[in-house]
Write a protein that binds this DNA or RNA. Structure first.
Lengths: 338, 338
DNA sequence: CTGAAAGCGCTTACAG
DNA sequence: CTGAAAGCGCTTACAG
C-alpha cells in the first residue's frame, strides 16, 4: 500500500541501488538523465523513504532525544525551543520526553532513546542529591554504545554539558541586595533533594555570611508556583510579628516559586516590595511584565538550549563542560524601603 | 559492538525466534525455564532492542508526531504537556517539531513524520487564511498512508480534532464586559492571516454589534508579547485624546499580546484598569499572578492536549471533531470605572 | 512449545 | 556510471 523504493525503481526502469543513490544517497550521483527519471517517478508515485529502514541500513537514525522535567514549565520550554533551533539544518529530529520529575520515567526515556538509537540525548533538569545512580548507570551504558550526552544543569562525570553556576550566581544576587540595604532575608527553598536547589541555597548562605548575616527563616517548599504560594502563605501566617518589624526580602529558589510567593504576599494584604521584597531565579519570559517587575537571576535559557544542541552536534570545540553564570537583574520587587 | 538479539539467543542457547518471543513478543510465551535463561542473558549482556529494526519488522514504529508553532509559548507548551500525559502508558514516543510559525518548516515536519512512519500526528496551532493548501495536501497524503491526524484549533476536513470556538467565546467575553458597563473598546488584533485571530476578531465584532457598538479602533499586530507591546505603544501615542476621554477596554487576540499591552499602558504612565482595561485570551499559567489579575477566556490547554492524544489513540468514541468552548474569566484588569 | 527461513525497506561495498 | 547481492536487526507465519 505504501510506495517503496523498489516501486520507484521499477517505474523509472532502474535498479533500486540507482534509485537509492538519486533519492537519498549523497556522494556518487548517477547521470542527470537517469536522476531525472527517478525523481519523476518518485514524485508521481508519492514516494517517502522509510526512515526506519534507512536507519537500519545506515545504522544511524537521525534522531536526538530531549528529556526535560516539565515541558509546561517556562524554564524547560525555553530550553526546548533553543535545542530545536540549534538542531535546525542538521537533519536531526527530536524525540521529546517530559518526565514530570519522575525518576522512573526519566530512566524509561533514556532506555527508549537507547532503543531508538538516537545519536545523542540532551538531558535538562536538576540532578538529585541521592537517587541518581540508576540514571548515571543508564547514561553510562548509553555513552558506551556510542551516544553523546549533553546535560544542562549539573553534568554527570564524563558527559558534555552546561554547568549552571547556581551557587556563585545566588551569592552574587545576595551581595547586590545587601549593597542595596537589605539585611532581613527569608529563604524560600524548593525540594532540597534537587542539587540545583541545594546549590542556590548554599550560594545564598554564602552571600549572607560574607555580610555577617543569617536568614530569618528557611522555608521548605515544592519547586512549583503552587509550592511557593503555599510555603509563603504559611510563613506569613506564623511570622506576622517578624514581618511587622520591617521589610523582609524573600529569596525564592526559582521564578515560578517567586510568582507564587508574590501572590501569597498580596493575598495577605501586604505590599511588594514595601513590606515583603521578593526575588526569583531563572528570568522566565513573563517576569518583566509583572507589576512590580521581579528581581531575578537571568539565565540565557534559549541560548543554553541552542548551545547544548551544538555540543551534541560536536560543533563546540573541545570544552566538554561549559559554565554558565547567571546574571542578577535587580528590578522593582526588591527595591529597598526603610 | 552493540549487543543484538542474536547475541542474547546464543548466550542463552536458544534461537533468535525464541529470544524475541521472550523479550519483546506478546502472545505465545515460551516455557518459564527458557524465558528465565533468555532474560538472564539479556540482562548480562545489556541488551537493548533496536527499535528501528523492530519498527521495520512490525511495520509500526511506536511514534507519534507533535507539531506546534512555538514550544516556548505557554499556549503550546501546555498543550505539549497534555499530549505527553495523554500518551503515557501507550508505549508511544513523541517526536516534536516547533516550527516558529514557518509554513515550510511545518511541511518538513509532516514529511519527516511520514518518513518515520509515525502512527499519527497532533498538529496544534492556527491555520492560515490563505496558504494552507500545501499543508492540507501533505496531511491528506499522510492520512492516505494510514496515519491519523488530530488537529487542535481548526481541524482540516477529514481529520480528527478539537475545534476551538474562538468566535463564540470571544463574543461571550464581550457580552460580559458590556454587561459590566464597558462601551469603548479597542481591538488589538494579531496577524489576520491566522484563522484564530480572524475568528476572535469576528466574535468581538459580533458581541459588540449585539450591543449596537463598534470598536474605537482596530490595531493590527504580531501574535506575540512584543507585538502587543508595540501596537499598544503606538496607539497610546496617537490616540491620547481618545484615552483621556474615559476608560478604554482593550481586547487582545491572546494573552501574551495582552501582557505586552499591559506593559505599554504602564510605560505610558496610565493605570490599569482605570485608564485602560485589558483582556486577553487563552488563560496561560502566569496570568493569575499578575497585578492586577488579567481578564481572559480560559481554554483548558493541558486537557486539550491530553484529549488530542486520546483521539490519536482512538480512545475517544466516534466524534471526529469535538468543540471546545472558552470560558470568560473576568478579573481585575477589566474592572469598570466611571 | 521451539526453530529455520523469509521478509520488513533500505544502503553500500563489490563487480562489471 | 550502474546493478546484483548481502546485510542492517528484528518479527512472524509456517513447519515440526
Amino acid at each position: 500500500m505504501v510506495v517503496r523504493l523498489a516501486d520507484v525503481a521499477r517505474e523509472a526502469g532502474v535498479s533500486p541501488a540507482t534509485a537509492s543513490r538519486v533519492l537519498n544517497g549523497s556522494s556518487r550521483s548517477p547521470a542527470e538523465a537517469i536522476a531525472e527519471k527517478v525523481r519523476g517517478a518518485a514524485e508521481r508515485l508519492g514516494y517517502f523513504p522509510n526512515a526506519q529502514a534507512q536507519a537500519l541500513a545506515r545504522s544511524s537514525a537521525g534522531l536526538v532525544g530531549l528529556i526535560v522535567h516539565d515541558i509546561a514549565d517556562p524554564y524547560f520550554s525555553s530550553i526546548a525551543h533553543g535545542v530545536q533551533h540549534g538542531l535546525k539544518g542538521s537533519g536531526l529530529r527530536v524525540m521529546l520526553s517530559s518526565t514530570d520529575r519522575d525518576g522512573e520515567t526519566e530512566m524509561e526515556a533514556v532506555r527508549a532513546f537507547m532503543s531508538y538509537r538516537t545519536e545523542g540525548i540532551v538531558l535538562a533538569g536538576s540532578r538529585t542529591v541521592d537517587g541518581d545512580e540508576h540514571l548515571a548507570a543508564a547514561v553510562e551504558t548509553y555513552r558506551k554504545n556510542g551516544g553523546r550526552v549533553v546535560m544542562i544543569g549539573q553534568p554527570l562525570p564524563g558527559t558534555l554539558g552546561l554547568r549552571v553556576d547556581n551557587r556563585g550566581s545566588a551569592a552574587e544576587l545576595v551581595r547586590q541586595l545587601v549593597a542595596l540595604g537589605h539585611r532581613r532575608f527569608v529563604i524560600l527553598s524548593g525540594d532540597m533533594n534537587l542539587v540545583t536547589v541545594g546549590d542556590r541555597h548554599a550560594g545564598i548562605l554564602e552571600g549572607l555570611a560574607e555580610a555577617g548575616l543569617e536568614p530569618l527563616a528557611v522555608l521548605p517548599g515544592i519547586f512549583t508556583r503552587d509550592g511557593g504560594l503555599e510555603a509563603m502563605t504559611e510563613y506569613l501566617e506564623s511570622a506576622k510579628g517578624e514581618v511587622a518589624r520591617g521589610q523582609v526580602c524573600v529569596l525564592a529558589a526559582n521564578d515560578v516559586m517567586a510568582l507564587g510567593a508574590l501572590t501569597a504576599v498580596r493575598r495577605a494584604g501586604l505590599r511588594v516590595p514595601q513590606d515583603v521584597a521578593v526575588a526569583g531565579f531563572d528570568d522566565i519570559a513573563t517576569l518583566e511584565d509583572m507589576v512590580p517587575s521581579v528581581t531575578t537571576v537571568r539565565l540565557p535559557l534559549d541560548a543554553m538550549g541552542e548551545q547544548a544542541a551544538r555540543m551534541l552536534l560536536g560543533e563546540e570545540g573541545e570544552e566538554a563542560i561549559q559554565v554558565v553564570e547567571g546574571e542578577p537583574v535587580l528590578r522593582e520587587s526588591t527595591a529597598f524601603c526603610l
